[in-house]
């Protein structure tokens, strides 16, 4: 089965208070020099059958209408290497 990953991030101009809260916690944890943190979502889709152009077009549509709200979010669709049969992950 092939894995397709959809990464969803808030658009750059949208304030991300959760990312800011993570960034502000970093110095307290001893991590210096990280100027900004943005928090997003990652979806891993295990696709049955071939990941051809038609399948990718459908996934793109799914990402655009459901996984991301394009009023506030951008998304990227990536095909990962096939997961070999029998592999536990």
């Amino acid at each position: 089965m092939a894995r397709v990953v959809v990464d969803v991030m808030l658009k750059p101009e949208i304030l991300d208070p959760q990312g800011q809260a993570v960034q502000r916690a970093l110095p307290r944890l001893g991590y210096q020099g990280i100027a900004d943190v943005r928090q997003g979502k990652r979806f891993e889709l295990e696709v049955e059958g071939p990941v051809d152009e038609a399948a990718l077009a459908r996934i793109h549509e799914l990402a655009e209408t459901f996984l991301a709200n394009t009023v506030i979010e951008d998304f990227v669709v990536k095909v990962e290497e096939s997961v070999a049969a029998g592999e536990s992950k």
């Binding site: 304030l15 208070p17 959760q18 709200n69 009023v71």
Partner: peptide, 17 residues
């Protein structure tokens, strides 16, 4: 209603969390 796009814009986490 914003998710249906019957109304424009979107709702996000409160700025103070």
């Amino acid at each position: 209603l914003t998710e249906t796009h019957l109304l424009p814009g979107a709702m996000l986490r409160n700025n103070h969390l």
